[in-house]
Amino acid sequence: MTYKSIFRSDAFVGQRIVVTGGGSGIGRCTAHELSSLGAFVALVGRNEEKLQAVAKEISAAGYTPPTRHACDIRDEKQVASTVADILASGQPITGLVNNAGGQFIAPLRDISLNGWEAVVRTNLTGGFLMARECYRASMEAHGGAIVNILADMWHSMPGMGHSGAARAGMLNFTQTAAIEWASSGVRVNAVAPGWIASAGLTKYPETARPMFQRLQQHVPLKRFGTESEVSAAIVFLLSEAAAFISGTCLRVDGAVPNARPDWDIPDHRRSKPYRAFDLESEIDFLDSCAR
């Protein structure tokens, strides 16, 4: 099944792009889209079986099979080894999608030190290590583009304070790296997905599903976003069309952070989801919300 991208089919021909967290959800979707546009994709993730499954999907669609690299991005030595493996082909890394991440639901008072550090290392430290290594090993000499994936952490993130703190840190890292690495021809931006109907939602306990089902009412567009909508934002920021965009964050959230309690938005079905990926994750308990 071919990816129905809005970008031209040769937009990334000859480019090698690393996608972390490429075994599922937004990372999987983005890897498919980039492959459909001619990129040589390097899938990075902790689960080799998931990476292999995505690689088979991409190959079956007729695109260049991606390379697979099992790696815990929180481990500095593994990151260095993984980047070296990717570069072993002799081709520089032109793009990095820092997508790997994760968190769990808990109030601040109940988060242990281990839990806090696990989330911060995954969502902040790991992204820093991947970006720094790609820069040192390739982009410093050849240029490139980095897109860091954040989350809707604007104003606060109750119930996920560890993730909110890490994502806010990644935003500042994005802004700082955009300045420090500009002279090397490297652009650094971020994409902040809001409530997206992605495979990541299935990792939360079933008791959280009623809450997810209610969330669409708080979205001005009255629906969840799609993986394709996030991927399109990532691909744009990696592309030559974004050549003068660096140090910024593109929100993909249906205007949730702009909503105000003193302004009622009537229920509607005027916002039509953009879906370009036939294999996009289907979340059964969100079907009525994501239409």
Score class of each variant (00 low, 15 high):
residue 238 L to P: 00
residue 238 L to S: 01
residue 238 L to A: 00
residue 238 L to E: 00
residue 238 L to K: 01
residue 239 S to D: 05
residue 239 S to T: 04
residue 240 E to K: 10
residue 240 E to F: 06
residue 240 E to V: 06
residue 240 E to N: 14
residue 241 A to C: 08
residue 241 A to K: 12
residue 241 A to M: 11
residue 241 A to P: 04
residue 241 A to N: 11
residue 242 A to V: 06
residue 242 A to Q: 07
residue 242 A to G: 08
residue 242 A to L: 07
residue 243 A to M: 12
residue 243 A to L: 13
residue 244 F to D: 12
residue 244 F to A: 12
residue 245 I to Q: 09
residue 245 I to H: 09
residue 245 I to P: 07
residue 245 I to T: 11
residue 246 S to D: 03
residue 246 S to T: 14
residue 246 S to K: 04
residue 246 S to N: 05
residue 247 G to K: 02
residue 247 G to I: 01
residue 248 T to I: 05
residue 248 T to K: 04
residue 248 T to A: 04
residue 249 C to S: 13
residue 249 C to P: 05
residue 249 C to Y: 05
residue 250 L to D: 08
residue 250 L to M: 13
residue 250 L to I: 11
residue 250 L to R: 10
residue 251 R to C: 09
residue 251 R to D: 11
residue 251 R to K: 12
residue 251 R to H: 14
residue 252 V to S: 02
residue 252 V to A: 02
residue 252 V to E: 02
residue 252 V to C: 03
residue 252 V to G: 03
residue 253 D to A: 00
residue 253 D to Q: 00
residue 253 D to M: 00
residue 254 G to C: 11
residue 254 G to W: 06
residue 254 G to Q: 09
residue 254 G to P: 09
residue 255 A to F: 09
residue 255 A to P: 04
residue 256 V to G: 00
residue 256 V to Q: 00
residue 256 V to P: 00
residue 257 P to M: 01
residue 257 P to W: 04
residue 257 P to Y: 05
residue 258 N to L: 15
residue 258 N to V: 06
residue 259 A to R: 02
residue 260 R to C: 00
residue 260 R to D: 00
residue 261 P to M: 05
residue 261 P to F: 05
residue 261 P to L: 06
residue 261 P to H: 08
residue 262 D to Q: 09
residue 263 W to M: 14
residue 264 D to N: 13
residue 264 D to W: 15
residue 264 D to F: 11
residue 264 D to R: 13
residue 265 I to T: 10
residue 265 I to A: 11
residue 265 I to K: 10
residue 266 P to N: 01
residue 266 P to L: 01
residue 266 P to C: 02
residue 266 P to E: 02
residue 267 D to R: 12
residue 267 D to P: 07
residue 267 D to C: 07
residue 267 D to T: 12
residue 267 D to A: 15
residue 268 H to Q: 06
residue 268 H to T: 03
residue 268 H to D: 02
residue 268 H to A: 03
residue 268 H to S: 04
residue 269 R to H: 12
residue 270 R to T: 04
residue 270 R to S: 05
residue 270 R to I: 02
residue 271 S to P: 08
residue 271 S to Y: 13
residue 271 S to D: 14
residue 272 K to A: 11
residue 272 K to Y: 10
residue 272 K to P: 08
residue 272 K to R: 11
residue 273 P to M: 09
residue 273 P to T: 10
residue 273 P to R: 08
residue 274 Y to C: 14
residue 274 Y to M: 15
residue 274 Y to A: 13
residue 274 Y to V: 15
residue 274 Y to S: 15
residue 275 R to Y: 09
residue 275 R to T: 10
residue 276 A to G: 14
residue 277 F to P: 02
residue 277 F to W: 15
residue 277 F to Y: 13
residue 277 F to H: 13
residue 277 F to K: 03
residue 277 F to L: 08
residue 277 F to T: 06
residue 278 D to V: 07
residue 278 D to S: 12
residue 278 D to R: 07
residue 279 L to Q: 14
residue 279 L to I: 05
residue 279 L to P: 04
residue 279 L to C: 07
residue 279 L to E: 13
residue 280 E to M: 12
residue 280 E to C: 10
residue 280 E to W: 15
residue 280 E to Y: 12
residue 280 E to Q: 15
residue 280 E to N: 10
residue 280 E to P: 06
residue 281 S to W: 06
residue 282 E to R: 08
residue 282 E to I: 05
residue 282 E to L: 03
residue 282 E to Y: 03
residue 282 E to C: 02
residue 282 E to A: 05
residue 283 I to R: 15
residue 284 D to V: 08
residue 284 D to A: 14
residue 284 D to T: 13
